[in-house]
């Protein structure tokens, strides 16, 4: 009873997207047939926010009726922790694993945990995002831009930081909020990038400003909305923009050194219980329909057919910074430990 009501609601909400079987490209149609027999898939989602993830899950089921998407949204490190626990226990529960910490994938690939599959739609992504893995074990499903934001009531425009290093200014003591690399993948990547640019000293100095530490990279947005803190570090542009659109007194800051871009993939675990549904989901994430689904909520499109959301800067206009995948894989566990030593949690 519960399920049917939700299904109806989901269908009703996504009716404009609904595609009839004959509209699907041939490769998707074949996969859809196979996926329908599996009926569902479980998506460990650490990339998109809770709201975005739920929307994506519903859009997927709307486009491919008969295949439910179980959204298990958490921070990327928690998602990876769940996956590790599954693997440790020999349990197959996850069909698609999405993390903002792209270091996870080279590790999983090396441990031979992933299923090789290159979605055909991958070729339609922005050129820079295609073929994330030359061997086809994982594929870009997310591009997150992480920058700074301030609450304009607590920190006026003139006083707001302009660069990542401005956050170290003692005048921002007790004003800063930031996520935690032990939970958020993006924060881990960000910490690796900051360390690369400024050394770990960046964080020992940041610690002196007594930042409030959340778990998710979204936590600072909440703190800014509430007026608990004035400046958010490494906040996602999409959720912050969504928050602004809802009337919160927030403003984005594009740091002069560059905006952190986490171009992160998704992968199918080798033991996925619903491999066809998982493959279909990979086709979905690399098609324009994912980008279309997240656009109204200020998600950054990864497909060229989808225009950036209202009022968002196009990626081409922004200076982007990012560590390499190798740097991420070895760096994130390191900065996580360093972080805990520096901040105590």
């Amino acid at each position: 009873m519960l399920i049917s009501r939700r299904t109806i609601a989901a269908l009703a909400a996504a009716l404009p997207f609904a595609a009839r079987a004959q509209d699907l490209p041939a490769h998707e149609r074949t996969l859809h047939e196979a996926a329908r027999r599996e009926g569902e898939l479980t998506w460990y989602s650490g990339q998109y926010s809770a709201e975005h993830s739920e929307t994506v899950g519903r859009a997927f089921t709307a486009r491919f009726p008969g295949v439910r998407c179980n959204v298990v949204r958490s921070t990327s490190q928690v998602a990876f922790q769940r996956l590790s626990q599954d693997m440790r226990a020999g349990a197959a529960q996850c069909d698609v694993f999405s993390s903002t910490d792209f270091g996870h994938y080279s590790l999983l690939k090396r441990e031979n945990r992933l299923l090789q599959y290159r979605p055909e739609n991958d070729a339609g992504l922005f050129p820079d995002l295609r073929r994330a893995d030359p061997d086809g074990y994982y594929h870009t499903s997310f591009m997150g831009l992480y920058l700074m934001a301030h609450n304009t009531r607590r920190v006026p425009e003139a006083d707001a930081p302009k660069k990542w290093t401005d956050a170290l200014d003692p005048k921002y003591r007790n004003q800063i909020a930031v996520g935690h690399p032990g939970f958020s993948g993006a924060i881990g990547i960000w910490a690796v990038q900051m360390r690369k640019m400024y050394g770990w000293d960046y964080f020992t100095r940041l610690e002196r400003n007594r930042p409030m530490i959340g778990r998710s990279s979204l936590d600072p947005v909440t703190a800014l909305n509430a007026g608990e803190r004035g400046i958010g570090l490494a906040v996602p542009s999409s959720s912050t923009s969504l928050s602004i659109s809802r009337g919160n007194p927030l403003k984005l800051i594009y740091p002069e050194e560059g905006v952190l871009a986490t171009i992160s993939p998704s992968a199918i675990p080798r033991n996925a219980p619903h491999p066809n549904a998982a493959k279909l989901f990979m086709e979905f994430t690399t098609s324009r329909y994912l980008s279309d689904a997240i656009r109204p909520m200020f998600g950054d499109p990864i497909h060229p057919d989808t225009a950036p959301a209202e009022g968002m800067r196009a990626v081409s206009e922004i200076r982007l910074i990012s560590p390499t995948q190798a740097e991420a894989e070895s760096g994130v566990p390191e900065v996580r430990e360093l972080w805990r030593d520096t901040f105590g949690v």
Binding site: S49, E51, R73, S74, V78, R82, F183, S216, P220
Partner: peptide, 26 residues
């Protein structure tokens, strides 16, 4: 929190997951 699977999450675990997402209203 250590024992749930994707389809066996309880309200308390889901609440914990939601608390990670920073959306206090939901």
């Amino acid at each position: 929190v250590f024992l749930v699977g994707p389809r066996t999450r309880t309200m308390s675990v889901l609440l914990y997951d939601l608390s990670e997402a920073g959306n206090f209203e939901v």
